[in-house]
Design a protein around this nucleic acid. Structure first.
Length: 581
DNA sequence: GCCGTTTTCGGCCCGACTGTTTTCAGTCG
């Protein structure tokens, strides 16, 4: 079992223990352990073999034993027994608004409720309101939440959130009463999916801002509206929250509402260690509960707060308690990549396979955006459903790309199309022979049809990485966010193979993929593996994915020099030639 | 369950809100 699968088991143990009513700090220890595993920059197998796993902070004796059992046998008796003792439906019930472990447990103990359906029926029958700690209102809220969950997905892809959020942000910023305004929450942290959009505003007077926010076009319903906060439901079932604060509180409120929760916990502990207290209202010279302005340190910006806690600034994308505190203490926070650093994309499609535009149209559009190059990597013949190219069509397309480039050159335009292929990684090997691949400037190898055997899938991808003509692996895990889980695969083993062979790994910037996942990039970077942020564009407007992919790369701690397609064309070509030599 | 030059036991982040309560437990972010 690989470390991600182990982490998933530990997280589930945490949830199960909560439902059992275990000590909350014990449940947290499991969740912390899971997150620690995800962030390891050394292979888990090595740590186990060398008996160094227990030296990792957050992993003690009990977790070492359990993790070792999982890695070595793929199973864990403790987990199997725990799972068997708790009905699966209880976990699902935690997703209902207002339902936490205690309430789920009470409903199970007293009414024998084990599923959302049973919960709904009990509410409708009025049984829930009879219980201690519940009432008529609880019953109504539970029914409302179940209905809402059925109608709307609980999370939304990043591009949908940005499209919904940015016009609102613009309007808030142009409101005369608004002093400062920003998006907070997971959207600001660059997360691949978010549950809601958080807006933070500082203003002298909040009433008019709340009014404007709750009455704008495109709002399905107002969920709550008070003096300083409001929640609305936008079209598409997206929830948006607004919080208005005093300008003197803006920095601490922005830090607080940006999170993550885990990051905030460490920040507050650092404050305590220095005899201070940090909350959303400020950083105070007191360890007692206070909002006294006299005791408040003057922090106008988030930078000031970090500085007061002896840290350099931590960009929002890194605030996940995955090593940012050590780095910020030592001045080792990298200068993260900006999307304007990118010069092109190396995995894209045209109307030769399942893309929308012709080669000429693509060149015109991408050149117009100010990019320097754009690789055309249509599907190979095994992807029949996508109109994949056979050998003869590849040869023909090569000539057409040369013709388009000649035209650009004659017109004095330095933009270039690069020839290429997204070659299928099949059970028997790559879909094309080496001599054909050698003729193409960019070769992306992608596993489109994975088997059910983890070892076999892993082996196939490692073999692809070992091919000297393959520059990079495309959308490694094959996941579709909120739709399809990753393929059965030992991603760490594939990353190791890429490190050894000098193969790049794509960060597929399609908002449904964002694959390789940001959680793996710190490890890949530590092994010296280079990243390529690719649009996997099927339409010209997909060039905009570069911005989303960059947010994920930043979350993975990547700097400009870690990403190959920040290079100008000449240097990129040199790097492309490197592996083949 | 984890952690520790003030500790191997007794801590473990913080505040608001909600609905249920006469003072608070549970949930949420």
């Amino acid at each position: 079992m690989d470390k991600d699968a182990v982490a998933e088991v530990l997280k589930e143990i945490g949830v199960l223990l909560e439902l059992k009513g275990e000590n909350p700090f014990k449940t947290r220890a499991y969740v912390n352990g899971a997150r620690t595993l995800e962030g390891l920059t050394e292979p888990l197998e090595t740590l186990i073999q060398e008996e160094r796993l227990g030296e990792v902070k957050g992993i003690g004796k009990a977790l070492v034993e359990k993790i070792t059992e999982l890695v070595e046998t793929g199973e864990l008796e403790y987990y199997t027994n725990l799972k068997a003792s708790i009905p699966a439906g209880l976990i699902e019930m935690l997703d209902v608004q207002g339902m936490g472990p205690k309430k789920v447990k009470a409903l199970h103990d007293k009414l024998g409720i084990e599923s959302i359906e049973a919960l709904e029926a009990a509410c409708e029958a009025g049984q829930v309101a009879e219980l201690d700690g519940f009432g008529k209102k609880s019953e109504e809220k539970i029914l409302e939440s179940i209905a809402f969950k059925r109608q709307h997905a609980s999370h939304h892809h990043r591009h949908k959130m940005l499209i919904a959020a940015e016009p609102i942000l613009d309007d808030l910023r142009s409101h005369p009463d608004v002093i400062r305004c920003d998006i907070a929450g997971s959207l600001r942290r660059g997360k691949e999916v978010s549950g809601d959009i958080d807006f933070l505003v500082s203003a002298k007077d909040s009433a008019d801002i709340i009014e404007a926010f709750t009455t704008r076009d495109g709002i399905l319903s107002v969920l709550a509206a008070g003096g300083t906060k409001a929640s609305v439901l936008l079209e598409g079932g997206i929830q948006a929250d607004l919080r208005v604060v005093e300008d003197s509180e803006f920095a601490s409120a922005l830090a607080y509402f940006t999170g993550s929760k885990e990051h905030n916990i460490v920040m507050r502990q650092r404050a305590i260690d220095r005899g201070l207290r940090l909350n959303e209202y400020g950083l105070f010279k007191s360890t007692e509960e206070t909002r006294d302005p006299e005791l408040r340190l003057d922090c106008k910006t988030e930078e000031d707060i970090f500085a007061a806690l002896d840290l350099t600034y931590v960009p929002p994308e890194l605030r996940e308690d995955r090593g940012e505190f050590d780095a910020a203490e030592n001045g080792d926070i990298p200068r993260l990549i900006e999307w304007t650093d990118l010069k092109g994309s190396l995995h894209n499609h045209s109307n030769w396979s399942d893309g929308h535009e012709s080669l000429e149209e693509i060149a015109e559009h991408m050149s117009g955006l100010g990019l320097a190059y754009w690789a055309v990597t249509d599907h190979s013949k095994a992807s029949f459903q996508a109109n994949g190219l056979d050998e003869a069509r590849v040869e023909k397309q090569l000539k057409e790309i040369a013709a388009v480039n000649q035209k650009l050159k004659d017109a004095g335009n330095s933009f270039r199309l690069l020839s290429g292929i997204e070659v299928d990684v099949l059970k028997k090997g790559l879909d094309f022979e080496d001599d054909l691949l050698a003729q193409l400037e960019v070769v992306v190898a992608s596993l489109h049809v994975a088997g059910s055997d983890e070892k076999d899938n892993t082996k196939r991808l490692i073999a692809a990485a070992e091919n000297p003509h393959v520059h990079m692996l495309g959308h490694l895990s094959g996941r579709l966010l909120l739709e399809r889980a990753p393929q059965k695969l030992n991603q760490q083993a594939v990353i190791d193979a890429c490190a050894e062979t000098g193969t790049w790994i794509e960060l597929n910037a399609n908002p449904y993929r964002l694959d390789l996942d940001w959680r793996h990039w710190q490890y890949a970077k530590s092994r010296g593996v280079k990243c390529v942020i690719n649009c996997d564009a099927h339409r010209a407007e997909h060039a905009g994915f570069l911005r989303i992919g960059t947010a994920i790369a930043r979350k993975g701690w990547l700097a400009k020099e870690d990403v190959v397609n920040t290079l100008p064309l000449k240097q990129l070509k040199k790097q492309l030639a490197k592996k083949r030599n």
